[in-house]
Write a protein that binds this DNA or RNA. Structure first.
Lengths: 351, 351
DNA sequence: ATGAAAGCGCTAACAT
DNA sequence: ATGTTAGCGCTTTCAT
């Protein structure tokens, strides 16, 4: 790996000049520019990113904190993040917290501000105190999928109206004529799916449809979790005609459960999820779901993060302290109902 | 972000001493050590990774080149890579080449040796010349999933015997009594699935079973690709009793195709894939497949890469040039047949 | 046991 | 238009 000054020597100039031609800064004579370019080519020179980072006081990477790379929602999102980051000149360091706040903290402490100049947080189950601290130390943080646009988290974020997603799911089921409905809610503990569930329940209530306690199950956010929950639900309430799950994976699991119980989807049972992961359109039957703007959210998040990075640090702070101005929240476009093959009209009761 | 010398000032020592304390180098008096540690804590000091990298002449990151983050095989692999890298003190920069060798080259040129001290290549459809060049420039490269252990690629790699995987698939189908078999091979062009296919065909041949040309379809490595290919296959050869796909996704697609054609799996058609992705056990019916040691391969790859990084550069080179010693290839353990619900015995011909 | 000093490869004033 | 000069924050000889 050749260095700037090697290039400079070969071109008979000083490294400052080489730096200038490489970044189109300062005025450089046309012929020296040529000589420099030749030398760069001859030596196959590539700038040393770590050195540049040090000199510039910034870093060419951002950190993407995720709780689990295995979530099927992750790939599309991460892909969009990577693309967007690339156009803003950043590389992406993937930080898997594995649901463990301590792992998350360890990552933050190590790379925030020293290797990455910004942090994207995607459902990573992190300690907010840790995030505030890294912010306070000067490294911008953006939450990627805040679920309640009207209830800002106190950190910059891009928000998606998941409450609305729940509503849309309920309305669809209601329109199809369903009245005896079950709900499967992503793990209670984190409460991260609360908004989805609220939207769903409220829409039901507005239509005068009740959702008894016993028709609600909390389950891990997986196919297996949905499977188990749906079986319980369907065992307990054999007359259930539709199941709503706060995420696609459990919805898919519900479909499996229905089939194992000898019930056909959508004829004997309708199932609807939220998110619209790739798998939703590839399963049998294809899953009706409420699509969430994944790619858009990713792009907004990167864009917001870059904005924060660019903004001089004092502005970042004052904006928060002096004015009672809250951290920015960018609201992504609304969820959209995608009707596929897993929902239909309830069968008439057998004579 | 406080710096080393700020810590030093507060502790009344010089930055060299702080450095020594922090990395347990050199002899430091017990009381100064204490004072230093206090100062570190008080100032919440964190080493600046970019600065350290520059001073040490090494980098704390490795690059993971992948062709598509969206491949469902990716998450498990990437997760394992991340874990392993972390234990060796490295962060992972995910580089999505999106199947484009030029994108791959751009990544390599930018970060290899300047931000990352090693490169992991996972089915990234990269130009081998580019890889050799980054190697020549002093940045170790490891191929993560070489498919033919006996036909080394000329680069360090971890190899998995995919030929054997194909054999195992064939043997299973044969044992179950299948004779009229169709094959779906991942995109012909790249030829990356050639070994799997060869193993399969050879095992068939050894058993005296022919696989006519028209029973082989080349298809994109997706559910949809497998679906289309399977429909063609089953339309053309209505008496086919089993389908082998060189990957799980197309195998899953084949199952869908069968159902749409009114054929039950496994009763009317058996389907087998290769890899054992998560989805394989979550689909209906669960997919019989030949499992490949994903996690093990990831760990071996990181381990090999680290070894290469640690080894002094001259050794890296001479080993190749003087001795006719080939770059190392680590062979991961053998693929294993996982029998699930998508394969059975062929139905007796209807009277 | 600790300090002084040079340097990693680059950028960014400021001179000339 | 180009060169000089400091650093960026850290590690690492080599002195003391």
């Amino acid at each position: 790996m050749s260095t700037l000054s090697e290039v400079a020597a070969r071109a008979g100039v000083t490294s400052a000049t080489v730096s200038n031609v490489l970044r189109n800064r300062g005025r450089v004579g046309e012929q020296t520019r040529q000589r420099v370019l030749e030398a760069v080519a001859a030596l196959a020179y590539r700038p040393h990113l770590a050195a540049r980072a040090l000199a510039e006081g910034r870093a060419p990477t951002i950190a993407l904190m995720v709780s689990s790379i295995a979530n099927p929602f992750y790939p599309e999102f991460a892909l969009a993040v990577e693309r967007a980051a690339r156009t803003s000149g950043h590389f992406v360091i993937v930080c898997n917290t594995n649901q463990d706040p301590l792992a998350g903290r360890a990552y933050l402490e190590q790379i925030a501000g020293t290797l990455s100049e910004g942090v994207l947080v995607m459902n990573a189950n992190l300690d907010f105190a840790d995030l505030h601290q890294t912010e306070a130390r000067g490294t911008p943080v953006v939450l990627c999928m805040w679920e309640r646009p009207n209830d800002p988290p106190g950190l910059p974020c891009v928000a998606v109206d998941f409450r609305r997603a729940g509503e849309l799911a309920a309305q669809h089921l209601l329109e199809r004529g369903h009245r005896r409905i079950g709900a499967i809610v992503g793990s209670k503990r984190s409460g991260i799916h609360a908004a989805r569930y609220e939207g769903f329940v409220d829409a039901l209530r507005a239509a005068g449809v009740k959702l008894p306690r016993t028709c609600v199950r909390y389950a891990p956010d997986t196919i297996e979790g949905g499977y188990a929950a749906a079986r319980e639900l369907l065992d307990l309430h054999r007359d259930t005609t539709a199941i709503f799950a706060t995420n696609d994976l459990p919805a898919l699991g519900s479909i499996h459960a229905a089939f194992d119980l000898g019930r056909n989807v959508p004829d004997d049972l309708s199932v609807i999820g939220i998110t619209d992961i790739q798998l939703a359109r590839q399963s049998r039957p294809p899953l009706t779901t409420v699509a969430v703007p994944t790619v858009e959210a990713a792009e907004m998040a990167v864009s917001l993060l870059r904005e924060l990075i660019e903004r001089p640090p004092d502005t970042r702070h004052t904006a928060r302290h002096t004015a009672r101005e809250q951290p920015r929240v960018c609201v992504a476009s609304e969820p959209r109902l995608i009707v596929r093959g897993s929902t239909g009209t309830p069968r008439r009761k057998r004579g």
